[in-house]
């Protein structure tokens, strides 16, 4: 798994690529929590993620809750069909704000 963090319109955009699985999700979790701690809205771009497992989804859940507790926000962008199915399985599509593109995500803040 690789990642890239950029700043746009006062928000942090965290783009992951490759597989977010049992091996890489501890890194993803650390990256996400560090971004959330910067007190800026966070957009997680999943467009280049081939596969995300339950541990990756759990890291997203923890980061969302941490952001909310601090009065911030965390959105998901470009969620693949496969990742969406995993989110839907645990009804997390009702919990996360999911946007089609980064522009849509920024506009919704």
């Amino acid at each position: 798994m690789e990642h890239e963090i950029t700043e746009q319109d006062g928000a942090l955009i965290v783009g992951f690529s490759g597989d977010v699985d049992l091996q890489s999700s501890p890194d993803a979790r650390k990256i996400l929590l560090e971004c959330v701690a910067r007190k800026m809205p966070v957009l997680v771009d999943l467009s280049k993620v081939n596969y995300i497992d339950s541990s990756g989804i759990a890291s997203l859940v923890e980061s969302l809750q941490t952001a909310r507790k601090a009065g911030g926000s965390l959105l998901l962008v470009s969620v693949s069909e496969a990742a969406l199915r995993v989110l839907e399985l645990a009804r997390l599509d009702k919990v996360f704000t999911i946007c089609g593109t980064i522009d849509e995500g920024l506009a919704s803040l």
């Binding site: 049992l22 999700s25 501890p26 979790r29 339950s54 541990s55 759990a58 859940v61 923890e62």
Partner: peptide
């Protein structure tokens, strides 16, 4: 797995 306890608890609750 070598996961944080919080991650494991969330995974278990999700399942």
């Amino acid at each position: 797995a070598k996961l944080d306890m919080m991650t494991m608890e969330i995974m278990a609750r999700m399942k």
